[in-house]
Lab assay of single mutants.
Amino acid sequence: MTSCHIAEEHIQKVAIFGGTHGNELTGVFLVKHWLENGAEIQRTGLEVKPFITNPRAVKKCTRYIDCDLNRIFDLENLGKKMSEDLPYEVRRAQEINHLFGPKDSEDSYDIIFDLHNTTSNMGCTLILEDSRNNFLIQMFHYIKTSLAPLPCYVYLIEHPSLKYATTRSIAKYPVGIEVGPQPQGVLRADILDQMRKMIKHALDFIHHFNEGKEFPPCAIEVYKIIEKVDYPRDENGEIAAIIHPNLQDQDWKPLHPGDPMFLTLDGKTIPLGGDCTVYPVFVNEAAYYEKKEAFAKTTKLTLNAKSIRCCLH
């Protein structure tokens, strides 16, 4: 018999989150649709729960009410004593943790798909938090293969000092899905179709896995975050240069030392320094102006996964 890495157990509980950011409308629209008619997301033997994560922000069509829901799922915020004085999103995070967690427990949901849009030209993107997770690498390989020839990129946010504390991190297997470009507060049919297909293929993978299909060893190309880059700023902290036209919409493309990065209003080009080629992502993302992030630098690498098969009882 072929030796293989056996994944822990079959997958039982899956959640699909929309509206973690209330103005990213593809996930909101799909989740609302699936709450009314969820036939397309159901798979035999699998509990799939669509869920609106930040209903107040969705109602106002804004990213958040008090603070970013997708950055506060750490033990400090989840452990705060519940009171009306807490920011709305912290209270909501505790409610979500109660419903789908608790985080880092045996009772937490197996998989959470968190649906997002970006204003950046990132196409279909899967966000991975753990480079050693054979199950998710296999799932992402399946999704990428199923979507081809449509490109699907994998963004690895594993980093020693950049801690995200994402909404989906309460699950055993957290999956971020990011599709763009799409303006905030807008629905685009092409973007919706791409996100819908990503979810379909992900659920198909889980179904095949649960039925005992063995997935042979595989490898995927990923883009691992190195650092986030702020806009150049003046002495008052105001933005002093904008994304250069040569960099705009060039997510995932190589940016070499000396290539144009920013452009000042008086026409001066600010190039990339250093001696390493990087791959920019979230270029000129609207939501990241407040976070002082013009783009993120990534490096390209390959992740390998062992063969996996479900432990059938």
Rank of each mutant, 00 (worst) to 15 (best):
Cys4Gly: 09
His5Met: 08
Ile6Trp: 12
His21Phe: 05
Asn23Cys: 15
Leu30Thr: 00
Leu35Gly: 14
Glu36Arg: 08
Ile41Glu: 02
Gln42Val: 08
Gly45Tyr: 04
Leu46Glu: 01
Pro50Gln: 02
Phe51Cys: 14
Asn54Tyr: 04
Pro55His: 15
Val58Asn: 05
Lys59Thr: 15
Cys61Leu: 06
Thr62Lys: 14
Asp66Lys: 10
Asp68Gly: 07
Asp74Val: 07
Leu78Lys: 08
Ser83Glu: 11
Pro87Leu: 15
Pro87His: 14
Tyr88Val: 07
Tyr88Lys: 07
Arg91His: 09
Arg92Cys: 14
Ala93Met: 11
Phe100Lys: 05
Pro102Glu: 08
Asp104Cys: 10
Glu106Ala: 15
Glu106Arg: 14
Ser108Pro: 13
Ile111Lys: 00
Phe113Ser: 02
Phe113Thr: 02
Asp114Glu: 09
Leu115Gln: 02
Thr118Gln: 02
Thr119Tyr: 01
Met122Lys: 03
Ile127Gly: 04
Ile127Cys: 06
Glu129Asp: 11
Asp130Gln: 06
Phe135Thr: 03
Ile137Gln: 03
Ile137Trp: 01
Met139Asp: 00
Met139Pro: 00
Phe140Arg: 00
His141Cys: 04
Thr145Tyr: 12
Cys152Pro: 00
Cys152Ser: 05
Tyr153Trp: 13
Val154Pro: 03
Ile157Glu: 08
His159Gly: 15
Leu162Asn: 12
Arg168Cys: 10
Ser169Tyr: 07
Pro174Leu: 11
Pro174Lys: 12
Gly180Val: 00
Pro181Leu: 01
Gln184Val: 10
Gly185Ser: 09
Asp193Trp: 08
Arg196Ser: 06
Ile199Asn: 02
Ala202His: 02
Glu211Val: 07
Glu214Phe: 13
Ala219Arg: 08
Val222Met: 02
Val229Leu: 05
Arg233Ala: 09
Ile239Asp: 01
His244Ser: 08
Pro245Met: 03
Leu247Ala: 02
Leu255Ala: 05
Gly258Lys: 08
Met261Gly: 03
Thr264Gln: 09
Lys268Met: 09
Pro271Trp: 06
Leu272Pro: 00
Gly273Lys: 14
Val278Thr: 10
Tyr279Ala: 03
Ala287Ile: 07
Tyr289Gln: 15
Ala294Phe: 02
Phe295Gly: 00
Lys300Ala: 05
Lys300Leu: 11
Ser307Phe: 05
Cys311Gly: 13
Cys311Ala: 12
Leu312Arg: 14
